[in-house]
Design a protein around this nucleic acid. Structure first.
Lengths: 348, 348
DNA sequence: GCGTTTTATGTTATCGCTATCATTAACACG
DNA sequence: CGTGTTAATGATAGCGATAACATAAAACGC
């Protein structure tokens, strides 16, 4: 059994109405319809009204893929983030969308699960849609991905990182420096025996840089060697944070402060402490990274590093748009450094 | 100052290479290139190799917008969720993406911030891209949105709800029933004085239905009248949950159990209790909705209602694809009811 | 070996829109 | 009133791919 499809507007040939149908119906040329639909201002008030009446009566909807073929502007911007489930990255995606909305560009969003191979495939798939610009997360890409991006001849913004070898433009911060700053801040409060909880693999480059920043700060300050627990593939979940905390406590019971690769794992670690009856920060202190909502709301509240995720998205989109509008007059290779800020709370 | 753009592949006219350039370079017709690129199997091995060599040498990337104009298949599926920052909805988006990936369709994702007006605008913007199907959240839409969708003549799947008047297909569950079930489960454990924390406005229709389910279960069971705290516009944050919990405790100190519209607000409420030194569930019990990661990880763990968010996305995408492939042989108006399950944990 | 099928390739005509140029009408000004 | 200028509209020719049909070459059957 099947239902009939609902009644649809059709032109005389039984097809979906096109701009030519609208033009005929309104008694004008299709150029006038096109102009009316993009508010070109070169259509008289009366004509415009007749056109919109015809559009309404026929239920016409502009076909942008046809339009972009002719105008060579697709109105797309592509963006790839590691994950859309992580609220840090979805904040960035939201920032991009909100900023693009003002410009009439539409976002083509994808996530690569922290894999550069998947990123390469996604880049290829997206370039086939001829985006006018592309926003990536991080500065590590496959060779083929780099080549494709260069060939595409569109502006690229790398975010969330400071790539050693940027493709084009960058909006980000140093994950290593941010983590260093956190360690130094905590060392300033008197903590000496540090542990670090992060992911295992090499996939999460931001996580790796945070770990590197942790290690270099520890040795720079001449503190006892950092105790590092690596746990699972990214993203490190709350549950994994809890388990890793168990590892820290059993291996190095005298640890004074634990820093986690993100607030999510830090929260898991915090909960594990509570389950074991440990008092945070009295028995052991905990700090996270990313300043997620949860860090400001849990009890005790988590010390964290605020990185302006939403702002990263907005800035990246704005920079991309500026370049799209005026490719020659933009300072390519310019770096936009976003703010990082230690947010000290009760957990340390 | 500006840098030169990186060297890009160009055809003799100085344009980006097209399929015709590839064809010329490989000494074949562009139809063969087209066929080779879509693995039609109707290209000999030697020709195929020559073509891919040419593609590689020229750095050619297929232009899908040109292709879809001719083939009348864009390869797009549109989806609108209320928010991409809420992990329940981003799980659904992930489910959609993961399922679509197998089919070669690409997702055009947008969020409407719980607003049907914004949804209407987004639907129009997306229909201009001629998606082959569209996935919506909830069953409430503006009249114009409904009309546009019917006119579009593409399959529609409404999710996360059981619309009173479905447009086409539905993959969802009854938010009211799910909440009722939670109330009855808790009543079965002996709780009698219930409070409810949810959003203020009429925007979040799922939230409203949960509240309705709460109220009807309370009165159906003959329990003391439910105490409802409405708080802010959706999405209700952790912080708002905490504040609302303060309201419950000051207005009705004898409340035995508080149910929240989502786990996020429930977590905020839980933290507020901890800050006030109240023991959960001994002094007051708390339950949430959505079975977010945090519910399973906080301390005490939160009782919640598991709705299979990821699965909703997968099923919706699968159903949409089936309809796209075979519009006539699909049972339109068929309803796919997804599972709901009470997850009892230590908080109640 | 000859007709028949299958496989591989090419030719042509769009798809639905917009850029570009051409045209007409309306208006201003000395 | 003629000329120049601006505003409003139309005609035409693609944009870059694919559908549909046509053809050539190879494989097959008896």
């Amino acid at each position: 059994m099947h239902m009939n499809k609902p009644e649809q507007p059709r032109n005389p040939d039984g097809q979906m109405p096109t701009m030519a149908d609208v033009a005929r119906h309104a008694g004008v040329s299709s150029m006038s319809v096109s102009r009316a639909l993009k508010n070109s201002g070169l259509v008289s008030q009366t004509t415009r009204e007749r056109i919109f009446k015809a559009i309404d009566e026929l239920g016409y909807v502009l076909d942008l893929s046809a339009g972009s073929l002719s105008s060579k502007r697709t109105g797309f911007v592509a963006a790839i983030v590691p994950s859309i489930n992580n609220s840090n990255f979805s904040d960035t995606a939201r920032g991009i969308t909100d900023e693009l909305e003002k410009t009439g560009l539409q976002l083509l969003l994808a996530y690569n699960d922290y894999s550069v191979e998947r990123e390469e495939r996604l880049i290829e798939a997206m370039l086939r849609r001829r985006p006018e610009g592309i926003i990536l997360t991080g500065g590590i890409h496959t060779d083929r991905a780099r080549r494709m991006l260069e060939n595409a001849g569109i502006p690229v913004v790398e975010t969330w990182d400071l790539p050693a070898n940027p493709i084009d433009q960058v909006v980000g911060f140093s994950n290593a420096d941010a983590m260093s700053l956190l360690v130094r801040t905590l060392a300033g409060k008197g903590y000496r025996k540090f542990a670090y909880i992060g992911g295992t693999t090499e996939r999460d480059t931001r996580g790796n840089q945070r770990r590197a920043g942790f290690q270099s700060a520890i040795s720079g300050l001449g503190l006892p060697e950092g105790r590092v627990v690596s746990f699972g593939v990214p993203p490190i979940s709350m549950e994994q944070g809890a388990q890793a905390m168990g590892g820290v406590l059993s291996q190095w019971p005298d640890t004074e402060v634990v820093i986690c690769v993100s607030d999510l794992s830090a929260f898991g670690a915090l909960m594990e402490c509570q389950r074991r009856g440990l008092s945070v920060p009295k028995d052991i202190a905990i700090a996270g990274f990313g300043n997620y909502e949860i860090a400001a709301c849990c009890h005790p509240r988590l010390t964290s590093v605020d990185i302006e995720c939403y702002e990263i998205g907005r800035l990246a989109a704005r920079k991309l748009f500026a370049t799209i509008q005026n490719p020659e007059h933009v300072n390519r290779r310019e770096l936009v450094l976003t703010n990082i800020r230690i947010v000290e709370r009760e957990s340390t």
